[in-house]
Design a protein around this nucleic acid. Structure first.
Lengths: 354, 354
DNA sequence: TGCCCGTGCTAAGACGATTTAGCAAGCACG
DNA sequence: CGTGCTTGCTAAATCGTCTTAGCACGGGCA
């Protein structure tokens, strides 16, 4: 109970040496500074005996580092979508003996500013700025004192000073289109963005890049989207309503690409309510791999946002920045993490023409 | 760039006073210690001018406190379900100028142990032990050095030393049953637990208490569940399969209580696939209020787990414990937060008997 | 004149570690 | 015998802040 913590001084006096010696031994610099094996062993034994654990605040004070990173997000911790991003960052940090301070800004730049200050006051060694949705964003001031990384976001400036980690949306877009084209589909509807390359919800990188990849592959196959439907909120109601309109129109097509899984959920509802089946009548490909995707019947084929991997990479990048190993060009580089395909049961070749 | 931080000594010398005086003034003890108004003003002006911000590591070292709390969860940050719990804790902490260290154990006691140690090394002032699902759990050792609170969990011992915050599942169970009974339902199926009071998945407090509340109200109305179906994983497939069996059985009933929203999702699928309607043929009440509940068609009537509020309360409780205001009986007390009803469209009176 | 007291401020020592500079003893060498 | 190098360890400063003890000054009182 309430026993005072064991300090370095306690260890030193119990081992009959000076605090200096104890410090040297315990920080592994014993050899280098020629402390005799006898003494080294004695100090280590005593430290273990007493259950000595260094006070990290003190170490931080001395070394000017807090042995911690800051993770500032808009709504990642909260939004039930990207928890794995935090998990990846958390694990990568813990593996290196670092802790993670997490903060949420709700997208408010003033809150962000305050949070960053609070983190710097605590001597964090680096800061990760995470976004829920891939987006371009301005860099906050005050980040000159610690290395930083953008997670799931790009800086809205020509030559940013800090690196970014983002999913490879472009390639995922290509792969999604390829999947359908290779299955034989020619009439493909787009829900969430399109049909033109500039028909994207404002501010979303994901939408723009996915669309670009899709159009690229479609174009190579000599196709254009059967239709495209932009909407700022990618939620089930819009997916439901749009799908109904598509089914009611004369030109139902054979496949739909939804820009996220929640739109796909809405599409499922509309298709089932119309008495049609997936993938028999309509194939669906989507993006995100939310838990939902696995619960839908039939299972939704979708390209996963590699949240866990993104989180891990982000801390690796801050650490590189901290140790100064990010020379020259790496400064503002963009790291793209592949989006793996989760193949389930919502894609099939179109029904043979009657 | 890279300008060294402004320290207290800088402020003091710029203001022409001793560090002591500067410290006194800036920590608001100027009056008490009779520093002249002139000097006080001068120090404050200089501090503001220089943009002085205290080094919290140093303060912590001196005061033996880290101005931070630890939030250790099994899979809360990660699991896409209880993000609001973190948000509530985060906001309550930030309001008081505290930061939150977050860690995830994945349910591994060894990891938990290490994490708690790491937090204590960093001189956190208190620790919140959070669970994804309400459960009883043993208390980890090593928590003697800092106040702690159980969030969404109960200690599995007779007289625990630390308080708990949990949703009021019992009352929610009663309210759910009451809702259906008052709408006129007599044949009510239970999916997730029941029909007997001991038919609950192992280790879940939520299941036991919800069931108890339901049976209590049903009993008062002279009813018993039409059927009950226990399962350790409350996921859509079990909801789907069980609902199918219920519909196929001779005794379809008029209402279902699902023990969480994902089970309800499965029930929706089965009901729709059977060509029946909600709430015309079957009413459904559920628990959790996951985002899903709002996306289902028709909207799912459900009792929300007050994640945000739980998170906030937990921080308030640790802080009470820290400041020692939790006298006597409060030590191991259990705080129950009400589960608000989210009334949507999945409940209606049963069809009049033909 | 001498003593006491209030006013307004400062010196100096923590807090717990790291690190630089350096001391003492033993030995070799010229 | 003096000098210089190794070996093995320690004293003391340092990080930035808080806090205890106390100093210097001036006025009131006996």
């Amino acid at each position: 109970m309430g026993r005072r913590r064991v300090t370095l001084a306690d260890v030193a006096s119990a081992a009959g040496v000076s605090p200096t010696t104890a410090s040297l031994v315990l920080s592994g610099r014993g050899e280098e500074l020629r402390i005799s094996a006898t003494v080294q062993q004695r100090v280590k034994d005593v430290a273990a005996d007493l259950g000595y654990r260094p006070n990290i605040l003190s170490v931080g004070l001395r070394k000017g580092s807090g042995l911690a990173l800051g993770f500032v997000s808009d709504t990642v911790a909260t939004s039930l979508l990207a928890g794995d991003m935090i998990k990846g960052a958390l694990e990568a940090a813990h593996e290196r003996g670092l802790m993670l301070f997490i903060g949420e800004t709700e997208g408010d730049p003033a809150v962000e500013r305050r949070l960053i200050d609070a983190l710097l006051d605590r001597q964090v060694d680096g800061v990760i700025l995470a976004s829920m949705f891939t987006q371009t964003r301005p860099l906050p001031e005050g980040l000159d004192h610690a290395p930083a990384v953008l997670l799931n976001a790009l800086a809205d400036m020509p030559r940013p000073r800090i690196p970014s980690v983002v999913p490879d949306e472009l390639e995922a877009g290509r792969a999604a289109a390829r999947l359908l084209v290779e299955a034989g589909h020619r009439e493909i509807h787009l829900i969430g963005a399109g049909p033109g390359p500039d028909d994207t919800p404002p501010g979303t990188v994901a939408g723009r890049e996915r669309l670009q990849g899709i159009l690229e592959v479609l174009g190579e196959a000599g196709l254009r989207p059967a239709s495209g439907h932009v909407h700022p909120d990618w939620l089930p109601p819009f997916g439901w309503e749009t799908t109904r309109r598509i089914l009611d129109s004369g030109r139902r097509g054979t496949a739909i690409i939804t820009f996220n899984d929640r739109l796909a959920f809405g599409a499922y509802q509309a298709i089932h309510e119309a008495g049609l089946t997936i993938p028999g009548d309509v194939s669906i490909v989507s993006f995100d791999d939310a838990p939902l995707a696995d619960w839908l019947r039939p299972g939704l084929t979708t390209f996963a946002i590699p949240h866990y991997e993104l989180g891990r990479r982000s801390v690796e990048l801050v650490l590189e920045a901290i140790s100064g190993r990010d020379e020259a060009g790496a400064r503002g580089s963009v790291h793209r993490v592949p989006m793996p395909l989760r193949e389930r049961a919502s894609v099939a070749p179109p029904r043979p023409a009657r």
